[in-house]
């Protein structure tokens, strides 16, 4: 790793480095919690932690707008919804006797690990087409303009998708009238 940083680092850069790896470590631990914990409610808390960590990563990447949207949508809405789900289905998911993972644990692990190995082998050696930022970074204003200009069509479509999902969710979850 040292050859990556052959120049002397300023204190601000040190702060960035340490916070990135700290947050990354926390996120990985939280993600592991999500998939391994027996108590599904604790898993949901882990997911909240991952979402918060991702928001912090976005902040580091100068995507403030996205960071706040992330907190609002994930921590505010998604995790809350999931917590609801957990409570509503508690009887089916709780109890020490209920197995939490299915029969394909080993093979899944091998497959995922091989996919992981393939990608992690290639990522460091790939040359990415990166540029050094010179002008203004994209901010909320840039995004807003883009949404209403170049991306107006996808934007409208995603709005309709959300609306349809909303209606669909209501229809599905509603109790059938007797």
């Amino acid at each position: 790793m040292t050859e990556l940083f052959n120049t002397a680092l300023t204190p601000w850069e040190w702060t960035q480095l340490i916070s990135f790896y700290g947050i990354a470590a926390l996120m990985i631990v939280a993600a592991l919690m999500v998939v391994t914990l027996r108590n599904i409610f604790h898993s949901a808390l882990g997911l909240a932690a991952v979402a918060l960590g991702a928001a912090a990563i976005y902040l580091m990447l100068d995507a403030e707008f996205l960071a706040f949207v992330q907190i609002l949508v994930y921590v505010g809405a998604v995790v809350t919804l999931i917590a609801f789900m957990v409570m509503l289905t508690q009887r089916a998911s709780h109890g020490k006797l209920v197995r939490q993972s299915n029969d394909q644990k080993t093979i899944s692990f091998i497959v995922v690990l091989s996919l992981f190995a393939l990608l992690i082998w290639k990522i460091p050696t790939t040359v990415w087409n990166t540029t050094v930022s010179t002008g203004n970074l994209a901010d909320a204003k840039t995004l807003g303009t883009a949404f209403l200009k170049e991306y107006i069509m996808p934007f409208e479509v995603i709005s309709i998708v959300l609306l349809v999902a909303l209606i669909g969710a209501i229809v599905l979850a509603r109790r059938e009238p007797k």
Binding site: V34, I40, I82, T89, Q100, S101, N102, Q104, S108, V111
Partner: peptide, 12 residues
């Protein structure tokens, strides 16, 4: 791939 609980799958 491995969670049995549907909510767990959703979270993954």
């Amino acid at each position: 791939l491995t969670r049995r609980n549907a909510v767990g799958i959703l979270m993954s």
